[in-house]
Design a protein around this nucleic acid. Structure first.
Length: 471
RNA sequence: GGCGACGUGGCCAAGUGGUUAAGGCGAGGGUCUGCAAAACCCUUAUCGCGGGUUCGAUUCCCGCCGUCGCCUCCA
């Protein structure tokens, strides 16, 4: 797998044999999570599934940031939770809970598995305070007029672990003015003193206030995964400063290596451009559904691109993947009517090709190409081929997560009424009454069954769950 | 402005210092077919532009152009 810290593909060796401990940087739940956010979690999900497929026990932790953080300038800036809370006239906790629920609903629509542990920032304020105290004791932090800051000069190599650029080469304050309370431009807040009117504030040894952004990930990852763990994922935007700060905080406090492998997901683009609220091209899962797409078509789209390259989201591209998903489902349902899946053999060359692809830094595009070989088996005249194809696909889908086995189960169930219509249609066809047979075909379509005529007679399958796409 | 990365067929997208540059979608042709659908077969790329290294580069280096990200709190 590729490690952002080593900037190279390296073999994965777990800290504990047979176990993988992974932390996913979670969302700030002040609004809907758009498809770019969700994509990052699809990637994390594939990572988790890949390791489980390979036989590892995976402990996956994701945070929910329900504490607001500064949007603009450090001093004047407002906090996201505060803004949203005012906008929707809700208290921050209720707001966070609502958007967190929506986030999980969308994740489920994308077949993203729930992490082993979901940790909310507001539930871990004591752990954060304890960590800040340790940093103060060890001389890595200092108390200033408006909070507690981390002194980056006490941590050699700060800002260079995941970035080749030396901190002094960066232009501190390029985007915002440097806070005069800080000793060094790159010092970052561990604890911020409460400002009048702050909706979220807690008691601390340094007075009432709220935690800095970076500290929650250090505190919670250590709480659930230990001081050193295997994998930490996040978006490419987190390379600096967020993850550099986490390293400085965590290793500064423990004196031990923090994370063994860093993964950063390249941003999703829309029509080749950045996705920004200001340009109005951000989409959420329900936008896809409103246009008649199955959210899993979006998952498939995400799998079709490597996570280290930009994923170009286009409606046309989504249609492509929806078609592919429909074709897969159709082929699976068709094959399942006449063949039973046989467990994929370890030595099966298709399975081996799949393993080779997915263990090559989670090369899902290549894995999909392999899956196409299994799909091709489904239309073989040889029943054993079809059984093998089904078995391979269900096996492969443990990683892809497209819900193919569940689809197959629901797609091969038929009710008695439809059965009767099919029998009637068969009779009409045998009698050469095509007008009646076509009429029955339409009726079945309305009941949710697509009928196709093959040389072996009629074949039916469920109409895809989605509505008809717009033209 | 600085740093990092990406730029492959009509679209999405793998990949490699040198045999035929994966796969999907679309398009065109064909087989099959009462119609429709499906399935199957065939066709559809010299890899952003300009230099350089090399016996040989799409793959390595440099420059340029375009796009994306970061430069204090956004996956």
């Amino acid at each position: 797998m590729y490690d952002s810290a080593r900037r190279d593909v390296v073999p994965f060796v777990p800290l504990r044999p047979g176990q993988v401990r992974m932390y996913n940087c979670g969302p700030t739940v002040y609004d809907w999570q758009h498809i770019g956010n969700l994509y990052a979690y699809v990637v994390a999900d594939v990572v988790r599934r890949t390791f489980e497929y390979a036989g590892y026990a995976v402990r996956q932790v994701m945070n929910i940031t329900d504490v607001g953080h500064i949007v603009g300038d450090v001093d004047e800036g407002e906090d996201k939770m505060e803004i949203a809370a005012k906008r929707e006239r809700k208290d921050p906790q209720a707001l966070a809970a609502m958007y967190a629920d929506r986030f999980f609903e969308d994740r489920h629509k994308l077949n993203i598995m729930d992490p082993t542990v979901v940790s909310k920032a507001t539930d871990h304020i004591p752990q954060m305070i304890a960590l800040i105290e340790t940093l103060l004791e060890k001389g890595h932090a200092y108390v200033a007029a408006d909070g507690v800051y981390y002194d980056v000069t006490t941590f050699p190599g700060y800002g260079t672990r995941l970035n080749p650029e030396l901190p002094e080469e960066r232009q501190a304050g390029a985007r915002i003015d440097v806070n005069p309370n800080k000793r060094h431009a790159y010092d970052f807040a561990l604890w911020r003193a409460a400002k009048p009117g702050d909706l979220q504030q807690w008691d601390s040894p340094w007075g009432r206030g709220n935690p800095g952004w970076h500290i929650e990930c250090s505190a919670m990852s250590m709480a659930y995964l230990g001081e050193t763990f295997d994998i930490h994922t996040g978006g490419e935007d987190h390379l600096f400063p967020h993850h550099e700060c986490e390293i400085a905080q965590s290793e500064g406090a423990t004196g031990k290596p923090f994370v063994r492998y860093w993964m950063h997901v390249r941003f999703l683009q829309v029509e080749g451009r950045g996705m920004h609220k200001s340009t109005g091209n951000t989409y959420v899962v329900s936008d896809l559904e409103a246009k008649g797409f199955d959210p899993l078509a979006f998952r498939l789209m995400g799998l079709n691109s490597g996570y280290r390259k930009p994923l170009n989201f286009t409606w046309r591209g989504l249609e492509d993947e929806q078609r592919r998903l429909d074709r897969w489902r159709s082929a699976i349902a068709g094959a399942a009517l006449s063949a039973k899946a046989t467990a994929a053999a370890d030595a099966d060359n298709v399975r081996q090709a799949f393993v080779a692809a997915i263990t090559d830094d989670f090369n899902t595009p290549r894995a999909l190409a392999v899956a196409e070989d299994a799909i091709a088996l489904l239309s073989s005249p040889d029943r054993a081929d079809r059984s093998r194809g089904l078995g391979l696909l269900f096996d492969i889908d443990r990683v892809l997560g497209l819900g193919l086995a569940a689809w197959c189960e629901s797609a091969t169930a038929i009710d008695d009424e439809a059965k009767a219509l099919l029998a009637a249609r068969e009779g009409a066809r045998a009698a050469g009454d095509y007008a009646r047979s076509d009429k029955l075909r339409d009726e079945l379509r309305e009941q949710g069954y697509v009928v196709k005529d093959t040389k072996e007679g009629q074949r039916w399958e469920r109409v895809p769950v989605r509505m008809k796409k717009d033209s």
